[in-house]
Amino acid sequence: MSYYEPLVYIVPPEEDGFVLKTILQKRLMVSRKLLSRLKLTEQGITVNGVRQYISIKVNAGDRVEVRMEEEQSEDILPQDLPLHIIHEDEHLLIVAKDAGIIVHPTHGHYVNTIANAVVYHWQQAGITCRFRPVHRLDQETSGVLAIAKNPYVHQQISEQMIQHKVKKEYLAFVWGVLNEPSGTINGPIDRDPEQPHVRIVTPGGYSAVTHYEVVEQFAYAALVRIWLETGRTHQIRVHMKYLGHPLIGDKVYTLPAFEGSKAAAEAAERLDRQALHAFRLGFVHPGTREWAEYNAPLPVDLAALQAWLQGN
């Protein structure tokens, strides 16, 4: 049986006599679910190289190690596809996703995804990992995507997301002139009862909070920086439409005032997707325990859109 590199914790003097379970949950931040899984593994949890029950008490200087079995995504076909790697280490793979590509294979769409490209990349590098994206990006949204290399890393970043400690920043090109240079949209989101695949702002929906700041105001559009407190499906697109400034190129969340305009027609000739880019992702790195940020520059199509808007 093969394992990933272990998580290691040396018990400090002030924790002499602590229960091992406490060390695992409070210091290594292992979730209950993962802890249950580790207990079934032969060398999942050891103290000074010896497998132990989590109910034992540890001594100062003890070496606590957590090992997870190596995994691989056997149901994902490896494909030699373009993969823009921003960062990779033994814990994480950070890539810049192109617009138009989906993250994970779905029913009827088994190839040409980020997952296929990542599995191929790992196969060529001799890395055995299961594909575990820690968040989602819409098919037509470009930008930073983080992929965990083991269940522990996935759990750690997911927990940060639940606690709203992950920084997710976007750049979006929206229609209209914004009256305020910055603001907050606090509008509950839920499914549209008449179109279940579409989301709307509705009083009975789930809490959703979006912050925005105008980066550059053009004659009839704007470039805005957006950051989220919550992560509802289509949140940015729904909220910007609700504000009266839908995303350029968004065919679902738009408004009649912008649909038939000359500017919209000219923009459509330059952009065949919604003008949304996830340009920054930040969190506490599960391996180093330090804050880390990853950036993806504005892609070619949106940079071209910006230049066109600046000239009009």
Rank of each mutant, 00 (worst) to 15 (best):
H135F: 02
R225F: 01
C129A: 14
I226C: 03
K149C: 03
T128S: 10
E216Q: 13
T202N: 10
Q217H: 01
D138H: 11
V201Y: 00
I248R: 00
Q195V: 14
N186L: 11
V153C: 08
D250Q: 10
P181K: 05
D192E: 06
R136Q: 15
A264T: 14
G205Q: 01
E140V: 13
Q155C: 11
V252C: 01
S182H: 15
A172Y: 08
A172G: 14
R225Y: 05
W227H: 15
L178P: 04
V224F: 06
I189T: 05
I162P: 00
A264Q: 15
S182L: 10
A172P: 03
R225E: 08
A219R: 10
W227N: 05
R199Y: 11
G205D: 02
I157A: 01
E266K: 12
G204C: 12
F258L: 10
P188F: 10
V215G: 03
V215T: 09
P133W: 03
Y242P: 01
V209L: 12
M240P: 03
T254E: 07
A146P: 07
G244L: 07
K262H: 11
R225T: 13
L145R: 09
T233G: 03
R237G: 02
T230L: 05
P151L: 11
A172C: 13
A222M: 07
Y253H: 04
P256E: 05
R237S: 01
A148Y: 01
F131K: 05
H245S: 07
K262A: 12
V252I: 13
A148I: 00
T141H: 09
G187V: 08
Q235F: 03
N179P: 11
A265E: 14
P151E: 15
I236L: 09
G187E: 15
H211D: 04
T184Q: 13
I147R: 00
D138V: 12
V166R: 04
L171G: 02
E216H: 08
I226L: 07
G231R: 03
W227Q: 05
E140D: 13
Q155M: 14
M161F: 15
E259Q: 14
P256N: 10
